[in-house]
Amino acid sequence: MRRKTDETDIEINYSKELFVDTGDPVLNHLLKTLFYYMEKDVIIKAKFDLNHHLWEDMGITIGQFLKNEVEGKKIKRFGTSILPMDDALILVSIDISRSYTNIDINIKDAEKGFELGNFKELVLGLSRYLQSTIHIKQINGENAHHIIEASFKALGSALKTALEPSDKLESTNRVYEV
């Protein structure tokens, strides 16, 4: 999967090992965390002009990548994870059906590279292009690094469950021909 714009050039492919090189060491770390908890080995490479564009387009590209993976397949659809990391405790709940995002995070101790705005742009892009409802709620925490990294861990764990194959169509909404 490749997304190339005037601002970014991002490529994600399956691999036999997890490798990430975006040019942003914080995003590298967080994407490795996300895919590790999803239990997916991928190679991600990116070039970009601004960090904001990188994070936003990365969310879009990951959303497209995962959407292509499950297109036409029966999946569990729902995934929820509550994960701690030091002072942070984060809840993530996902429904792969339609796009909606709610991020309830309040960072008190900022840290360079762990900006809430970039994090939100990545999650919004992921939600739009995967067609998923994503709720992220901070239950506890002050440190930006711990809060955002715990969010990526919980997001990966919730996505792992939601993307798993299912024997049935996980919906009570049925379309009946008349």
Rank of each mutant, 00 (worst) to 15 (best):
D86F: 12
K108C: 14
V26G: 01
T5D: 03
L159N: 06
V123G: 07
V26C: 01
M58I: 14
G72D: 05
G125Y: 00
S151R: 00
N28A: 01
M1L: 04
P25K: 09
F78P: 14
K168H: 02
I105A: 13
L126A: 09
G141F: 02
K168D: 05
Q64S: 10
I44W: 03
T133A: 07
I148M: 00
L163D: 08
D109W: 14
H52A: 05
L163A: 07
Q64M: 10
R77N: 04
D109V: 15
Y36C: 02
N106G: 09
Y37L: 05
K160H: 12
V175Q: 01
L54T: 03
S132Y: 09
T61N: 07
I139K: 09
I136L: 08
D24F: 01
L66N: 05
E7G: 03
K137E: 15
G156R: 05
D109P: 11
G72F: 13
Q138K: 11
H29S: 02
K45S: 07
S171V: 10
G117C: 10
P165M: 00
E11V: 04
K137M: 11
H146Y: 05
S15N: 08
E164C: 08
I147M: 04
K153A: 12
D95M: 06
T101H: 11
L66G: 01
E164K: 12
L159E: 02
D87K: 11
R128Q: 11
D109Q: 15
S97V: 12
E11I: 06
K112V: 15
I148R: 00
N28W: 00
F35T: 06
E71Q: 07
N106F: 07
L122Y: 09
S151I: 04
F19Y: 11
K112W: 14
I12C: 01
L66I: 05
G63A: 04
K45E: 03
E111I: 05
V26Y: 00
E170M: 10
P84A: 08
H135Q: 08
K137I: 13
M1K: 00
E170V: 15
D9H: 07
T61F: 00
K47T: 10
L83K: 15
D41V: 06
I136D: 10
L122F: 15
I75W: 02
